[in-house]
Structure formats: structure tokens, C-alpha cells
Simulated scan of single mutants.
Amino acid sequence: MQPNQPNQTSQTSQNDPVDRKVVLVTGASSGIGEGIATRLVAEGHHVVAGARRTGHLRALADRTAGAATRSGGSLHPLELDVTERASVAAFVDGARRRFGRVDVFVNNAGVMPLSRLDSLLVDEWDRMIDVNVRGLLHGIAAALPVFADQGSGHFVTIASIGAHQVVPTSAVYSASKYAAWAITEGLRQESDPSIRVTTVSPGVVDSELADSITDPGAAAAMRTYRANAIAPDAIARAVGFAIDQPADVDVNEVIVRPTRQR
């Protein structure tokens, strides 16, 4: 199967247990997104993994094949650019055609090119807004009608500890993640009770996020800041906990960070 050509005839088995979910994960080619996809496949869910780097997604599918066989789950790579509304719509539509439903949409894709405001890295500011804010809104716009039609669904937003605090170099990033928090909280309040909404805010996690920092001062500060990072699986466990709750339980918000991060 090519990453951008989903199987249009495959459906979930009628014998699937009721707790086996169809979970869409954006930004699944590395870091937290890869960790979430890996864990959920091992827990027996059907994961549709989206990202621009389709080679990374194919490698992820290969790495999770053994776990999928053991658990009954699966991983299906699809090319995705969250900054393009049509791409996100096709991502959701492809998953729905393959499985007949979408149970969970994990808005995880994000970028973090930190810098001081007086560095005037405006293109990087724009990129953060496009991915971290517009990408989130595109996911909501694509999945919300599906959830409303089904009468069920679960949004999970991967925000950041930056949604709760601002430090030098984080002004734009924190603003984008506060926006993610605010949008998701508004979605929770506006949604029908059949639709669950969760925000997970990670602290320092091993990932490629810091690799996009071009500002030398911010990059140096981040190397010190990330000395006590935790593994992406810590965030994946929080997501697994939230989506595995009974339908009448809505885990609204979780903050997960290293014990040494204060």
C-alpha cells in the first residue's frame, strides 16, 4: 500500500472487541507521535499514522508489525500535511473509508523553533502558527462532522507545558500552545457529551522538536533544559489512559513532565 493510497475496501472486523479503537495520529513520524502510535498498536488499536515523511512512517509500520500481530492492532501510514486543510480532510476520509469509522483523533503535529522576539525570525513564527494552531483547527474541522455523524468520538490535543508558562525565547511557541489549549477547552465546552475532549501537556520529552531551533542562544538554553527529558512513551501512556476510559468518563487535561522539571 502506498502511503497516500488507503485501502478503500478494508473494514474493521465484526469480531473486534468494543474497546479496539480506530485512532488517527498526526505528526507520527517521530517523537511523541511515534511513541503514541507505537503504544496504541501494542495495545490492540488500529492506528492511522500521518506525517509528511512517509519513509519514516513506513519504517514505523515495519517496526510495529510484530506488536500488531500479537495484539490484533494495526498501523497504516498516510501522507499528511496538517497545514493543508485538504490534506487533513483526505487523511480523515481515507481512514473512515478503510475502517468505516474514526474513534479518536490525536492532534499531535507541532514545531518548536524557539527564539527571542528581537531575533525577528518571522518565518519561524509563521510556521509555528501554521502547524501548531491552524493544523489543530484543520484536524477539528475534518473530524468533528464525522464524530457528530457517528454520535461518538474523542479528540486528544498534544499541547505543551508551554501552554501554562512563558520563558525567554518561548513567547511565540507558548502562545501557539496556549491557543491549542484554549481551542481544545472551547471544543470540550461546545461539544455534545458523546464527544470526549482531552488535552495532554508534555514537559521535556526526548524528540526532534529542539532540532528546529536556529537561534544560537535558544539552542544552547534548550540543551541544558532537556538534560532530564523523559521518553515519548510517558506521553503515550497518558493518551492510552484517556482513550481507554469508559464512555461516561472524560479525562479533560493531563500534565506529564519529568520529576526533575519544576
Rank of each mutant, 00 (worst) to 15 (best):
M1A: 14
M1K: 13
Q2C: 10
Q2K: 13
N4F: 11
Q11Y: 06
N15Y: 14
R20A: 14
L24R: 09
V25P: 04
G27I: 12
G27K: 12
G31L: 07
I36D: 12
V41G: 15
E43Y: 03
H45L: 04
V47L: 07
V47G: 11
A49H: 06
G50A: 10
G50L: 10
G50I: 12
G50M: 12
R52E: 11
R52Q: 13
R52V: 08
H56G: 12
H56Y: 14
R58V: 10
R58S: 05
A59V: 01
A65E: 15
G66L: 06
A68D: 09
R70H: 06
S71V: 08
S71F: 03
S71N: 02
G72E: 03
G73C: 00
L80N: 15
L80R: 15
D81M: 08
E84I: 15
A86Y: 02
V88H: 03
A89F: 09
A90S: 10
A90H: 08
G94P: 00
R96L: 00
R97T: 02
G100L: 03
D103K: 11
V104E: 01
A109G: 08
A109M: 11
L121A: 04
V122Q: 05
V122R: 11
W125C: 09
R127G: 14
M128T: 07
M128S: 09
I129E: 00
V131H: 01
R134E: 09
R134V: 10
G135R: 03
L136K: 05
I140K: 06
I140V: 12
P145M: 00
F147H: 04
F147W: 00
D149P: 03
G151L: 15
S152V: 07
S152T: 14
F155A: 05
A159R: 02
S160W: 02
S160Q: 03
I161W: 05
I161F: 09
A163L: 06
H164E: 09
S170C: 04
A175G: 15
S176N: 10
K177G: 02
K177F: 08
A179I: 05
E190R: 11
S191W: 10
S191D: 07
R196G: 05
R196Q: 08
T199F: 08
T199P: 06
G203W: 02
E208K: 05
D211S: 11
S212M: 12
S212E: 14
I213G: 06
P216F: 10
G217P: 00
G217H: 06
A218M: 08
A219K: 11
A219F: 14
A220E: 15
M222V: 11
M222R: 10
T224N: 13
A227Q: 07
N228A: 11
N228P: 02
A229F: 02
A229D: 07
P232C: 00
R237N: 09
R237W: 09
G240S: 13
F241L: 09
I243P: 13
P246K: 15
A247D: 14
A247E: 14
V249M: 13
V249A: 13
N252T: 08
E253H: 01
V256D: 05
T259P: 07
R262Y: 15
